[in-house]
């Protein structure tokens, strides 16, 4: 594998967006790009990542390769990232290490890190981001992040309801409750403020606040978040990157005993 990002901070943002959710991950590299999937330690949140060749300045992968890493180690190396540096990832045919090369052309500086790979046994699950859902919502990632931060302070359970009035986010804590209603809107001057809802059924689902606080860490990857909900199946919270690919978080709703 030889894959070069023209801006090393892109890879840093991608890794930082889920390093607090999962501790280790297998990157599956092939000619169609880098894909990865991991479940958090409590087995509740599934992270699914896609970095297609369009995200790279140059991308070459001669044969499918699995690159297993500890995210805490990788994240330490990526502290060197800067927007003025490129980052090239190299993996040999019989991989036992990942090489990261940062290059700053203006500063005539290069930095090289090598990281030992780890053997991770994990089943790949069939996830389909085109999955059928009762409700799809596209909205501002900044708005979603703020609502999650504000409301989850009040309760460890966060409810999403979608009906004819729009989308309602609510919490009902022991000492306080809160509710935010958003209606669809189109802002031609600032499309990142658009909110669209398509629904075949109304939904009313509750999620653990803790996982939503992890999910919003990926909001640096995109202006928009795409939400997909169906009764009794995992919801998908997805941030799509400008140059293609993105990161999706599958989270199963809580249910009453």
């Amino acid at each position: 594998l030889e894959a070069k990002f023209d801006d090393s901070t892109i890879f840093k943002k991608i890794i930082d967006s889920f390093k607090d959710s999962v501790s280790q991950i297998n990157f599956m590299c092939s000619e169609s790009g880098i894909e990865a999937q991991a479940i958090d330690d409590s087995r509740v949140l599934l992270v699914s990542l896609s970095i297609p060749p369009s995200c790279f300045e140059t991308y070459r992968c001669d044969r499918p390769t699995t690159v297993g890493v500890y995210l805490s180690s990788l994240s330490k190396l990526l502290k060197s990232a800067s927007s003025s540096a490129t980052l090239t990832l190299y993996v040999e045919d019989q991989p036992d290490e990942l090489l990261l090369l940062f290059e700053e052309s203006k500063a005539s500086k290069s930095m090289e890190y090598k990281m030992k790979l780890v053997d991770i046994t994990a089943d790949m699950l069939e996830v389909d981001s085109d999955m059928k859902s009762d409700v799809s919502v596209e909205m501002s990632g900044v708005e979603f992040t703020k609502i999650v931060r504000d409301l989850t302070q009040l309760s460890d359970s966060f409810t999403v309801s979608v009906g004819k009035d729009g989308i309602v986010f609510s919490v009902d804590g022991e000492t306080a409750s809160g509710k935010v209603l958003l209606q669809p809107k189109e802002d031609l001057a600032n499309p990142e403020n658009n909110l669209s809802i398509s629904m075949t059924k109304t939904i009313d689902l509750s999620f653990a606040s803790k996982y939503l606080l992890d999910i919003i860490k990926a909001s640096t990857l995109s202006n928009m978040i795409s939400l997909k909900f169906s009764e009794e199946t995992p919801a998908l919270f997805e941030f799509k990157m400008e140059k293609g690919g993105g990161i999706g978080f599958y989270l199963a709703p809580k249910y009453d005993e």
Binding site: I39, S42, R43, V44, L45, L46, D123, M124, L125, E126, V127, S157, S206, A208, T233, P234, Y250, L251, A252, K254, Y255, D256, E257
Partner: peptide, 14 residues
């Protein structure tokens, strides 16, 4: 009280 189901049973293995 609410229960939090784990995620894997919702997906098939590849």
């Amino acid at each position: 009280a609410q229960n939090q189901p784990v995620i894997s049973p919702f997906f098939k293995k590849k």
